[in-house]
Each structure stands twice: as C-alpha cells, then as structure tokens.
Design a binder for these strands. Structure first.
Lengths: 354, 354
DNA sequence: TTGTAAGCGTTATCAC
DNA sequence: GTGATAACGCTTACAA
C-alpha cells in the first residue's frame, strides 16, 4: 500500500462507477441505498480520502481561508487566529496562516504566495493603513475582510473596535478618579486606529473642561516603548496617570515604571490596552480596555462567508464596543497639588537613579 | 478580466507552447533566452500566477506544511508556529495551522481534515503523550516531526527540550539560595515531559542531600491552577519556594500569591517556566526557565525537510538545553528557622484572609 | 438512478 | 531546445 487509494480504486472495489462514488461521498445526488452502503464500505476499507487539490481543481471551490496578521508573537493577533480557526474549521474549511512581521514587503510577498492557492477568502490585518496589497487580492477576485487596522472609510468589508469609544472608556475612568495630568502612550500616530483612540480621549477631556492629554509615540517594539517612556519621565517628571493605546506598549510602561521605581497606582495610575491573563495575575492587577477579539473573529468570518456565497451588498463596516476591566492599577488622585503640578521631587529623584 | 489567466493564455500571448511557459517559469529546463524574455513578459502582462492545486495535482509535490498545536492561546505554541512559519515560508512552503484545543478528538478530526491535502509534512505537538493520531499520518505516508510532548523513546523524529536538565537548572538555583522547602507546581503528571522535569528536580535535591520537593498537580487552566494552589497553601502553609513546571501555571501561582498577599520574593521565592516578555516587566520580574522555542521550530523544520527529501535514517531525537533567566522573584533564604519549618504564622494569617 | 466521458490547469514524457 | 500529448484525481454534464 505505497500509494493512496483513488476514487477509481474505490469504484472498482464497490463495483460502481467513479461518478457514483463521488455522488455518495460528496452527498450530491441521491443514490440507491444499497450502493451507498457498498461505496462507503469500500472507501473505509481502502482508507480513501478525496484528494483536495484534485477536487478543487475540478470544482473550483477551494475550502481554504487565508489569514494574514502582522505578527504571531502578539496575543491579540493569535487570539484572532484562534477564533477564526475555530469558526472556519467547524465548517470544513482549512486555514493558511501567514505573518507579515509588521513589514509591508513581507506582506506583499506572502500575499503573492497565497494568491496562487486561490483561497476562498482572506482575512487580513494589514501592517499599515495604506494596505497597498489590497490590489493583489482585488486583482485575483478573492474576497477579503480587513480587521483592526483600517484608514477611515474603506470600500471593503471591515471589522474593528469602536476606537473612539474604547479610548473614551479609559478617559472617563481616569477623569472620574480625578486625574487631569494624563500621558497617552501609543505606538504610532500613522495608524488610524491609534489616532481615533487619541481623539476619543481628547473628546472626553474636552467635555470635562480639561486640556487634552499629551501624547507620546513609542514605536512598536517592547524595548523602544520602555526606553522612550523612561526618557520622557526623566525629562518631564512622572505624570499622574498613563493611558496606553496599543497592547505592546502596556508591557513597556510597566518595565519603565519598575526601573524608575514608580509605584502603581501610588505614584501613577495606569490603564492598559487589551486584556490578557497576566494582567489579572500581576501585582497590582492591571486595569485595561478589553477588545472583543473572539467576536471580531466570528464577525469577520460571517462577513467573509457572505462574500464567498456571492452576496453583493455594499461593504459592511462593523465597529464593536470594548469593555473596561477595572482592577488595581488605577486609583483616585489624593492631593490637588500632585495633579495640577507634576511632582518635581519625584522627577529629580528619578533622574538620579540613572 | 473575470477569470484568472492560465498557462495557455500566456503561451498564446508569447507565441510558444504551454510546455515552454512551464519550463521558463518553473526554471526546469534551459530555454532560449529570447523566448524566456517573451514568456516572462507575457506572464507579467496577464498577471499570471500558476494554479497551485493544478501544479500539485500533476507534479505530486505539495509545498504545504501543516502544523498542529494544542492551543493558539498559549504563547509557547504560537511562538513555535511563528518560528516554523518563518523558516518554511522562506523556502516557498505555506503553512496550514490547526489547533486541537487540548482535545484528542479534535486533534483526530483536524488531522483527518488535513490528510486529504497531502501536505508535504506535518509538525505536531500532540495533546497527549499517547499521540494516538500518529497512525493517521503513518497510514497516509506523510512525514511528521513530534515536538515538545512525547512519551519516552518514540520511533519518529522528535524535538523537545532536555526536560531533566531544564528542571535541574531551577533546582540548582533554588538550592544555591538555600531553599529546601520547595513546592513543585505542574499541570499534570500524565504528561511525560512534566514527569521528566519532576525527576530533574528530585535528582538535584537528592544529590544535595535533601528530601524531594512535594508536587502539586494543578490542571491545564489558569483558574484551576490558582484555585488549587490557594487551597494547598491555606492547608499546609506557605512553602519557602515554588517551582513551576508548565507555563500556564506560572500565572496561576502569581494570582494565588497576590490574593493571599504572599510577598515575592520576601515570603516566597518563585521560578516560572517559559520566559515571556511580561515576566521581565512584572514587579518583581520573574526568574524563569527559558525554552529555546525558535530553535525548536527551526530544528523541527530541518528534520522534516530531510524526510521530505526522502532521507531514510533512523528517527532523530533532539533534546535542546534551556537557560535560566535569573531575575527578582527568587531570593536567598534568610533565617534557618524559616526554611526548615514552614512559617505557621503566615499560614494562619493567610487562612483568615479567606 | 447509474455510467461514460470530458475537462479543470498543470507538468512529464517523448518525439521532433 | 521546443512542442504535442497524455495524465494527475476529481466533478459534472449528459447519455443511457
């Protein structure tokens, strides 16, 4: 038994034609119950499995979904992959996963490698708002859904969080605790979702009659976050609160605080972005905005499925609400002095710690 | 341009035969430079991309690697996926990813769905040592490499860490700090890798003339870990040190300690398993055994590639060394009393906290 | 209801 | 070096 059994082998063994085998196994056309039994039996005996490449080639239906994410080291993205994989596999599709490693050239190269598979559909988190690679998918007539990162109004199906609302949750929480001296820490303002989150915070502060928090851009790597935040705090002193708008930055802030011996929430109240298990286990546990990642995955798949089915409505544009998980890293402001005037003593002390 | 261009379209446009197009684009046979140019040009004009299903069907070479992991929510597994994806995609293979969600039935179902793709090879972390599903792969003559979880001597290529040595690193570290009262926390002793890690610790303690640490099994979910550890500490008091042998358990221990107000490393020294970014950012930062996950991925791919190439040597059995990252969560024992006799005061105080 | 035969897009074989 | 032609394993008209 060196080579795998083919449909002809099964047909011969069951004493029927290949077409009948196909009809039985694919449950396409009604077949005489007796033959069904014989075919099923023969298939089982031979361990027959239809060759997917062959059936796809003939039928034109591919049963493959590709998912492209900027990184497989970021739990937000892998959770999305997990969610999609679960939906999709329950409907007998398989998932090709690919990472662009936050690099547009890699994104393009990976997509070029995917197109020849002619997947039934693609779910993609582009590594930049420009999403220049969309032309590749459009040219190949492959339906796709954009998740998480998208610039303003897109003329394609998209699923993301309500960025403005998510950030507003964090802002309201800090405002209600009396914080006015807040620093926003975000990866890069070139991403529209980050800009929207900033707007969400600014709007709430404005509504509360406060000046907009300053923004610190810190890049996408863990190290750059910690380093730039550290430099900022050494220069300008420690703000009363930090609100992070991208998940990687959350860890960088914690490291910087640990290094500078800034107590959370004593010296600094802290709101993280994304909600991971470790945030609940950390001491103090971290208050954070939780993205509905599983729902994002299921909604993206729902969108995509419609397109695969050939539905031709105008682009869907889903914006999902987030939740704020309030934990121990945020506390009420105690003195009015500390909030209106950054603590110069701490700043000086911190500067010595080098 | 409703349908994608085929090789025939390119041939017609370049004024050559399909065979020549195939030879040019696949760089199989030497072709007249002038024709090469014409073919390349025509292909570019038409945006031609060879249909992978068709080429696979004819050539029998699939360029797909499947990777099966027990979970896509565990960073150790996703890092492995990331590592493999990077290796494999650089050699023009694509990756089908599938999660068994720690369930043998799902593992079987997913593998049954994969086999019809006839992937060139499979990299799998089985969800149990039994790895009953291996027969599926063997029957289909699909080469595979087992990673991380394997029971004793396997007659298949395997890549894992040196479990005994990894745990010994943790044991030596704790011993050198004067710890004798150590509690081992592990998911489940039904996994051979966990048993080996326990042995590694026991061996070092024996060599140091100490009694073997007790072992607490805590299951595979975050909640069960925290809950069972909490119960244990309330009953028996707080040990001088905890050594965790599975990555999920690391977080559970931290949560339990936070809840019981056990200070790390003041009351309890703590060694985690696996080394994630958050461990470095946590306060205190966490001493942990680091698995060489990227190397595990590259080695698994190297093994698999040999099998795909048809090499027929006896099964490779790679065991990679781990490193211990010493950080702030472990400290030397201060008083001799505290170490030989668990602190009953703490235990009593803790019991009140309910 | 079942069988026959064509053909999906590619690559391999073998003439030329 | 190049081009017909067949064949990969399957699905699907269409004929019986």
């Amino acid at each position: 038994m060196r080579k795998a059994a083919t449909i002809k082998d099964v047909a011969r063994r069951a004493g029927v034609s290949p077409a009948t085998v196909s009809n039985v196994l694919g449950e396409r056309k009604p077949v005489n119950p007796e033959l069904v039994e014989r075919v099923r039996h023969a298939a089982r005996d031979l361990g027959y499995q239809a060759h997917r490449a062959a059936s796809y080639l003939r039928s034109g239906k591919s049963r493959v979904i590709a998912i492209v994410v900027p990184s497989l080291e970021n739990p937000f993205f892998t959770s999305l992959v997990a969610a999609v994989e679960q939906c999709v596999s329950s409907e007998h599709y398989d998932v090709i996963v690919t990472s662009s490693r936050e690099n547009e050239d890699i994104e393009r190269a990976r997509l070029e490698a995917l197109v020849p598979w002619r997947p039934a559909g693609v779910i993609i988190i582009p590594c930049s708002d420009a999403f220049a690679t969309r032309t590749l998918l459009a040219a190949a007539h492959i339906p796709f859904v954009v998740v998480d990162r998208l610039a303003g109004p897109v003329d394609a199906d998209s699923v993301a969080i309500d960025n403005v609302g998510a950030a507003a949750l964090a802002a309201d929480h800090l405002l209600s605790l009396g914080h006015r001296d807040v620093l926003i820490v975000a990866s890069s303002l070139t991403l529209a979702n980050v800009r929207e989150r900033c707007q969400g915070i600014a709007a709430r502060f404005k509504a509360a009659g406060c000046r907009s928090p300053r923004i610190l851009e810190v890049g996408v790597t863990f190290d750059s976050v910690a380093e730039r935040l550290e430099r900022r705090i050494r220069q300008d002193g420690c703000p009363g609160a930090v609100c992070v708008l991208t998940n990687y930055a959350t860890l960088g802030v914690l490291r910087a605080c640990a290094k500078l011996r800034i107590a959370i929430p004593g010296d600094l109240s802290f709101v993280g972005f994304d909600d991971y298990t470790w945030m609940d286990a950390a001491s103090p546990s971290i208050t954070a905005v939780r993205q509905p990642v599983v729902r994002m995955g299921t909604e993206a798949w729902a969108c995509l499925k419609e397109r695969i089915a050939g539905k031709d409505h105008p682009p869907a544009c889903l914006r999902l609400p987030c939740k704020l998980e309030v934990r121990q890293s945020t506390a009420a402001v105690v003195s009015r002095i500390a909030q209106s005037e950054p603590d110069k003593n701490l700043a000086r002390e911190v500067a010595k710690t080098s």
